[in-house]
Amino acid sequence: MNWQAVTTQPCELGESPFWHPQEQMLYWVDIPGKKIMRTRGATGPTESWLMTAPHALEPGCIAPARQGGLVIALRDGIYRARAWGSALQLVVPFAHDTKTTRFNDGKCDPCGRFWVGTMYEPRDARKAALFSIDCRQGGLPQVELKADDAITANGLAWSPDRKTVYWSDTPNHIIRAWDWDETSNVMSAPRVFHQFPAKPQGWQYGMAGYGGRPDGAAVDVQGNYFVAMYEGRRLLKLSPAGDILADIPTPAQCPTMPCFGDDDLRTLYLTTARHKRSAAELADMPLSGCVFSMRMDVPGLPVNFFSD
Rank of each mutant, 00 (worst) to 15 (best):
S307I: 10
Y205H: 15
A65E: 00
G68R: 07
D109K: 05
R274P: 11
D264N: 11
Q67D: 14
L26Y: 03
V227C: 13
S188I: 03
K146I: 02
R266K: 13
G85F: 06
P17T: 08
T272G: 09
D308Y: 10
T43R: 13
G60Q: 03
F305P: 01
A283V: 15
P171V: 01
D220A: 01
L140K: 14
G242V: 13
D243C: 11
N224H: 14
D169P: 05
K237C: 15
G138K: 09
D297N: 03
G206C: 01
H275T: 10
I175G: 02
D243M: 09
F103T: 10
A129K: 14
P110E: 12
T7N: 09
A56P: 01
W49I: 03
L268D: 09
W115G: 00
N304G: 06
W3Q: 06
R191Y: 01
V227G: 05
T152Q: 01
T43W: 14
M119F: 14
T183P: 00
Y166Q: 05
S188M: 03
T250M: 01
V291W: 07
W180F: 10
G211E: 02
G289N: 07
R295W: 06
V71I: 12
E121P: 04
A241Q: 12
P160C: 00
S132M: 13
H173R: 04
P21L: 14
P10M: 00
I133R: 05
E182H: 06
A189Q: 11
I78Q: 01
L236A: 07
V29F: 02
E47L: 15
P64R: 06
V219C: 08
L287S: 08
A125S: 12
A228S: 05
P59I: 04
Y269G: 03
N104P: 01
R80C: 00
F94N: 02
S132P: 10
C108R: 13
E182R: 04
T118A: 01
T101L: 06
E58P: 03
G212A: 07
P17W: 06
A83K: 14
H20E: 13
R123E: 15
N2F: 07
F196A: 00
G85W: 07
L13N: 12
M1A: 12
S48W: 07
A241T: 14
A87S: 11
A252R: 10
I151N: 11
V29W: 07
E58L: 02
A198P: 02
M25K: 14
I151W: 05
P197M: 03
G223P: 08
F292P: 15
P17N: 08
T183V: 13
R213V: 03
R162D: 11
D297K: 04
E121L: 12
H96L: 12
A280M: 13
I72R: 11
D297V: 06
G216D: 02
L90Y: 01
Q195S: 06
A273T: 04
N304V: 12
R213H: 05
S188Q: 07
S188V: 01
H194M: 02
V221F: 08
Y166G: 07
A217P: 00
A217K: 02
D148R: 11
G69L: 05
T39D: 07
D124E: 15
I248L: 07
L140D: 12
H194T: 06
L238H: 06
P64K: 04
Q24L: 10
D215A: 09
P10F: 00
N104C: 04
Y166M: 08
L235H: 02
A81D: 05
G139C: 09
S48A: 12
V303Y: 10
